[in-house]
């Protein structure tokens, strides 16, 4: 498990670098090298580190460990074929990480990031729609049983396409430099991450790399099926590049537009679920 955790962290950081590179090339800039985020994580590991004088110390430090723990747990759930309800829970608990990170410092910038995280709570609901839609088709929330279902009946990507779109939107909501990345917008410095620097930032980079890896891996596993590792990685990369294109050509929305769009999408998906419930009895 430890070696897979290190592998996932490395790939996640590499994916972050590729994400930045693709965005830059689409926008006509050379962009940083693709290993830039790995260098960032290493650089922050050796920077001087302290805790701001105004911070709630236990929460400031504790939340970083919580971030790493929940995404390591999520990876474990995927590898062992656990329940996607657990995955949904972890995704929602990541919201607490965002809140805690922002509120614990006392800084107004991080606090604004935390408030933006609170008001964009609608971004989590499409994942719930995904969970319910998958349950309608497979009758189970166990990842092992969902992949077994796909081996028998073909990928869920085709039969449950709106649910796949919902999950795609969920991943897009959590991508850096995306249209919904309001919690780390530059007008509030780095948003809720502003005061976490040095080793804390390095640890957060690791947690976020794991998060990206887990979300992309979960998409492939849930909607396409269990494949050899090399093929899974290629599909994850293609998915990432498509997300990077969206991020590159879409400006960051205002907080209220973000909430409006996410709520509208969630509403449309709820209608899909109701139709599904009526059609499938």
């Amino acid at each position: 498990m430890i070696e897979y955790l290190l592998f996932a962290t490395f790939i996640g950081l590499l994916f972050h670098g590729i994400h930045r590179k693709v965005i830059a090339r689409v926008q006509g800039r050379p962009g940083p090298p693709i290993w830039q985020e790995i260098l960032h994580a290493l650089k922050f590991s050796f920077k001087e580190t302290w805790i701001p004088k105004t911070a709630s110390r236990a929460l400031f430090v504790g939340i970083v460990f919580v971030a790493i723990a929940i995404w390591s747990g999520a990876l474990f759930i995927l590898l062992t074929g656990g329940s996607i309800l657990l995955l949904f829970a972890i995704y929602l608990l990541h919201k607490i990480v965002e809140h805690g990170m922002g509120l614990s410092t006392g800084s107004p910038y991080t606090k604004f990031g935390a408030i933006r995280s609170v008001i964009s709570a609608a971004s989590e609901l499409p994942l719930l729609v995904t969970v319910v839609a998958i349950y309608f088709f497979t009758g189970s929330l166990s990842i092992a049983e969902i992949t077994a279902y796909q081996e028998m009946n073909g990928p869920l990507l085709i039969v449950a396409f709106p649910a796949a779109v919902a999950m795609y939107l969920v991943i897009l909501s959590k991508m850096h430099y995306g249209p919904f990345s309001i919690i780390e917008a530059k007008e509030i410095v780095s948003g809720n991450m502003t005061e976490h620097f040095g080793v804390w930032r390095a640890a957060l980079e690791v947690a976020y790399a794991l998060k990206t890896y887990v979300l992309l891996y979960a998409f492939v596993l849930i909607f396409i099926g269990a494949l050899p590792l090399w093929l899974t990685l290629i599909l994850m990369l293609l998915l990432l590049i498509s997300l990077s294109f969206v991020c590159a050509v879409t400006p960051m929305l205002s907080p209220y537009d973000t909430v409006t769009i996410q709520s509208l999408v969630t509403g449309a998906l709820v209608i899909y679920i109701v139709i599904l419930a009526v059609v499938m009895g």
């Binding site: 105004t54 911070a55 709630s56 110390r57 236990a58 929460l59 006392g106 107004p108 606090k111």
Partner: peptide, 12 residues
């Protein structure tokens, strides 16, 4: 965490 933490001092 609630039991062991002290609150932050907000900067305005």
């Amino acid at each position: 965490l609630v039991i062991v933490s002290r609150p932050e001092r907000q900067v305005d």
